[in-house]
Amino acid sequence: MSTTFDLATTPLREVNAALHAPGISGDFVIGNPQGAHNVAVGLDAPVSVTVEGHVGYYAAGMNQRADVTIRGNAGTGLAENMMSGTVHVTGNASQSAGATGRGGLLVVDGDAAARCGISLKGLDVVVGGSVGHMSAFMAQRGRMVVRGDAGDALGDSIYEARLYVRGRVQSLGADCEPKEMRAEHLEELADLLKTAGFEEDDPASYTRYGSARTLYHFHSDNTY
């Protein structure tokens, strides 16, 4: 039995406040989001939330422990800085999906726009389609899987995040380079694909990208 909120009649503030209630658990449905921003942000409970429709900016932002499913498309900053739990979008995501995410799993069934996984800090991102330019910019930790293509400047200024792309990469950003797919990478990619529901993919058809580490000491200091 789930609890349903209708955003056509219930203010967003009331919905988010209800989802922040101490000790909350169970299943929740949010109807009629109609592109609303900041839906289901700041959750910190073992709840399951299904949003029936398209959402605006920052849906499921900073998520902790909750499993959020968005049956539609998501706007800018989907699941930004999420800490744990899962966020699943059945449609496409706009720019900066998973920005600065620190943990958990973000799955976008469709495409993700520019800057997907920007400043990644530990989150796993799996994109069913393609990602736009500047994706994984300054990505520090975590993993990003792209089943389609990647736009320009993939992984620009990347640190220690690992990127797996099956399709074509328009161009690599500064300090990002293709890496060897060793057994442990094939294994972790197979796990990620399986967890995200794409177990039919052959991990060997992907290319791994990571940091060339040439920017780690940029020789600009002068202490004399």
């Binding site: 967003l12 921003h37 700041g42 900053g77």
Partner: peptide
């Protein structure tokens, strides 16, 4: 929108 997110 970002400010509203932090408020929420």
């Amino acid at each position: 929108i970002k400010i509203n997110e932090l408020r929420e």
